[in-house]
Design a protein around this nucleic acid. Sequence first.
DNA 1: CTCGGATCGTCTGTACACGGACCATTCCCT
DNA 2: AGGGAATGGTCCGTGTACAGACGATCCGAG
Lengths: 155, 155
Amino acid sequence: MTGRRGRVSSTLPAEDLMLHPGHLLRRALQVMNLLWDEEVSHTVTSPQFATLNALHREPHGLDQRTLGRRVSLDRSTMAEVVSRLSAKGLISTERDARDGRRKTITLTARGSTVLQQLIPRTHLMTRRLVGALDQREQDELLRALTAIVAANERA
Amino acid sequence: MTGRRGRVSSTLPAEDLMLHPGHLLRRALQVMNLLWDEEVSHTVTSPQFATLNALHREPHGLDQRTLGRRVSLDRSTMAEVVSRLSAKGLISTERDARDGRRKTITLTARGSTVLQQLIPRTHLMTRRLVGALDQREQDELLRALTAIVAANERA
DNA sequence: CTCGGATCGTCTGTACACGGACCATTCCCT
DNA sequence: AGGGAATGGTCCGTGTACAGACGATCCGAG
C-alpha cells in the first residue's frame, strides 16, 4: 500500500491537459486565430482590429499608452502594432503639441473604411467559433471569461 | 430615418470588445500567463510544461512531430521549445536509428523531477484562474472550451 | 525656478505561434 | 531496383506578448 505517510517515491501519473483551463484557453485561441484568417482578414490581425475599433469615434485620437490600455496591450506590443497599422495607412501618428512625450494616434479614412468592412466579418467568425454551443452555453462562456478577466484587473 | 434601403453612409458604432469571445479569449490567456509566472514557474512556461507532461511515461520517447501534435504546437514552435528545454537539461534528443529523419525526445531525470514539482503548482494556478467562478460555472467553462477546440480538430 | 519623481515612447532580449521554402530520408508503386 | 510522393526537421519571415533599461519630457514640491 502506498501510504499517506512518508515520502512517496513513485511518480504521479501524467496530467490530462484537457482538464486544464489554461491549456484549453491556449488551444481555443489557436482556433480563433485560424478562423480569423479564414473569415475576417489575412492582413489585419485581431489585435490590429481591436486597435482600429478603439480609435473609432475618437476624433481627437488617443495616445499610445491609453490605446494600449483600451485593447489590453503593453507598451512594447502596442508600439509594434501601431507601426504596422501605420505602414498600412490605416492610422496616422502625430506628436502631441501640448505634451512632447505623447504620440497621438488617429484613424485615417481608409482605416475607418476597413474597420467598417471587417465588423460584420468578425461576427461571422464568432458564430463559427462558438457554433458548437447552444445559446445558453455561449452566454455562460462569455460570463465566465468576463469574470476571469475582471478578477485580474489589478495591476 | 436611416432607412434599410440604399447605401448607408453613416458609420456603425464601435464594437464592444467585451462581447467578443475572441477578444476575451486573448485577455483570459494573458491573465493565465500572469498567474503562471506568479504561481507555477518563472523559467518553465506553460507550453514547456505541456511538453514535459506529454513525455512523462513515454520510456521510448516521442519524435518531435508527434510531440507537437500532443501539445498542439506546430513544427517550428515545437522545434524552439525542444531547443529551450534541451538547453535547460530537462529533455534529451537523439536521432532515430531506424528512421534517419526523426529525432527522438526523451524526458531526463531532471525533467521528470521538475515536472513532478510543477504539477501541484499548476493546480494552484488553475484555482486562482477560475476562482471567481462557482463549481458549475467552472464545469461549463471547461465544457465550452472543449467543444470549441473539438469542433476544430480538422486539419 | 529648480530638482526629483513620474510618465511616455523606444529599444533590446526572450518566448510563443504559424506559414512557406528547403533538404534529407523514407516509403511505395511499378 | 528505381523514382516520385510523402514525411520529419530546419530555417526564414512575420506577428503577438512582455519585462527591463533608457532618454526625453512633464509636473509638483520646495
